[in-house]
């Protein structure tokens, strides 16, 4: 596997080696390697059906996987449970957002801090103010039911809810999915801003250009394998990325 020097020399938050995930007999992910450091945005881009969502689900403990996963310096055993990972500061904003539709924006946010509350922290109101600072739109809608929000607001709420847990690693699954260009721009601006807080961000995107613009490092996932990786500026200029998306490149293989 190629060893690209990372741009930052920060503490490694997550290191994955030889990750494999299989649905029955079909391997959805094959030998994926990945490194994420503190304060870094790493993006995984790739066409539809390449296994991006599977990657996040397996990292979050929603799917069983084999391979080596080292999170915050601790090798992860086989019993990876979502709840434990949440406690250790890993959060996932899923593709479907998974909001609590019949609850207010405020209650959705509050539940984002459920595990912190359960482990004795009582700072949820302050965290909520920080989230509102980041997403003023959510403060305007704080009493509204989540199910009545627009697509962009839903994505903001999903991200805000994840931030309520004060994560060390924030994983975002296609935050641009189904959103209009202007809103995508806004969301990506906020993601770039989050970087300043020191949280490591793993951004899975189909929208390659937008993702590469804010990311430090990128991986291209194609049919379950990492086909390309490198600093995002390099990837953005690589014609093979376009080929991967539009199926122009395989004919010579």
């Amino acid at each position: 596997m190629s060893k690209h020097p990372h741009l930052h020399d920060h503490e490694v938050i997550l290191e994955v080696k030889n990750l494999r995930v299989a649905y029955g007999k079909v391997e959805a992910l094959h030998d994926v390697d990945l490194t994420i450091r503190r304060g870094e945005i790493v993006t995984v881009i790739g066409p539809n059906g390449a296994g991006k969502t599977t990657l996040l689900a397996s990292l979050m403990g929603l799917l069983p996987a084999t391979g080596e996963i080292v999170y915050m310096g601790h090798a992860q055993g086989r019993e990876r449970e979502v709840e434990t990972l949440v406690r250790q500061g890993m959060t996932l904003v899923p593709e479907k957002r998974e909001l609590f539709a019949e609850m207010s924006v405020e209650d959705n946010l509050l539940l984002g801090a459920f595990d912190r509350y359960r482990s004795g922290h009582r700072d949820q109101m302050e965290t909520m103010d920080e989230v509102f600072e980041l997403f003023p739109r959510l403060e305007e809608r704080r009493a509204q039911l989540a199910g009545t929000l627009s697509g962009g607001e839903r994505q903001m709420l999903a991200m805000g809810r994840a931030l309520m847990a004060k994560p060390k690693l924030l994983m975002l699954d296609e935050p641009s999915l189904g959103l209009a260009p202007l809103i995508i721009k806004e969301i990506f601006r906020i993601i770039a801003e989050l970087k300043q807080t020191g949280v490591a961000i793993l951004l899975v995107e189909q929208n390659a250009r937008a993702a590469l613009q804010i990311a430090d490092y990128g991986y291209v996932l194609e049919t379950g394998e990492v086909s390309l990786s490198g600093p995002s500026a390099e990837l953005a200029a690589d014609p093979r990325v376009i080929e991967a998306y539009l199926g122009l490149g395989h004919k010579t293989r």
Binding site: E83, V86, P94, L111, D115, R161
Partner: peptide
């Protein structure tokens, strides 16, 4: 699923 992701 949403609840699980919140650590519930």
């Amino acid at each position: 699923t949403g609840a699980r992701l919140m650590g519930i």
